[in-house]
Design a protein around this nucleic acid. Sequence first.
DNA 1: CATGTTTCCTGACAGC
DNA 2: TGCTGTCAGGAAACAT
Length: 322
Amino acid sequence: MQSKAGNAQQLGSGRCPLCDWRSAALYNGAMPELPEVETVARGVDRRLRGDRIVQVWFGNRPQSFKNPPARQAKGLAGRAILAVHRAGKHIVFELGAAADAASKRGGLRETSLRQKNEPEAQWIVHLGMTGRLLVTAPDVPVAPHTHARLALASGSELRFQDPRRFGRLEFRDLGSGGVAFEAPGAEPLSIGAREFAELFQERRMPIKAALLNQTLLAGVGNIYADESLFEAGIRPRRRTNRLNAAELERLRLALRRILNDAIRLGGSSVSDYVDAGGERGFFQLEHCVYQRTGEPCRRCQTPIRRIELAGRGTHYCPQCQR
DNA sequence: CATGTTTCCTGACAGC
DNA sequence: TGCTGTCAGGAAACAT
């Protein structure tokens, strides 16, 4: 058995609150995708909606910032958190007026904006591979690779940590001609059959590469691409324009079902992922192909095969997927 | 334009 | 024990 397959046997970790299941060890190799990002966004929203940012500290690793940290810190300070939600793999903080600016500025425009509760700014967080967004008490020791700390009026602290620094933080001021963030691709949970088919039938890339392309569908990453192709019975290398209507519809429904199941289980904790309260998810226990190279297919016992596609490890059952 | 490849970054692990 | 090499991957940049 290859070394990667050996790793895969140790897949998952943490303790399940329901069954007390516990695995041997962590291992490396997963990232926050739509279900994980949804879980984090919901957790942050529940904890911080209505709170106010009173103080901001940013680290000095420029890779983590889409616009300069000093500007982001200045933009965030004093603002109310109106809501937090997911868009694709992004976590979007909808922010109100800064406390001091609101009292200074006043005026008609301000009043109308506040009445409609429209955001005046946004903070957009992408977790990349290893990013974590955690709500903690301020006296909890600061973990290594913490690049952002936001002190809140409630006394809580929001922290962003990201060892590999593939994550990105971005501040947008919507008041001065700034444009609200929009995920580039369609939402896989709500896209209809026709629109889904239209995304793919004119293209000729491998279906797996298309699923990973965020400008087509927003939020699908390596785990859920592999898992949904397994459930739909489609080989990852199949060209998108060679898939018939029935296959595309199977894929759409498989993707939707798997993403919803994963959200229900709090996401897949394969390596670094935890939700806003530091809890791990449990969808990794449901994986059929991802990181199961060489292990028997759960449906037909054929060993799961691993190939490289679009620069990613890609897992499938040669018997069940055609 | 569409598609393919490289790069960034660190921790975990295998092997010596 | 401790070192070195390999691998994981989202998305932007670059190449074909």
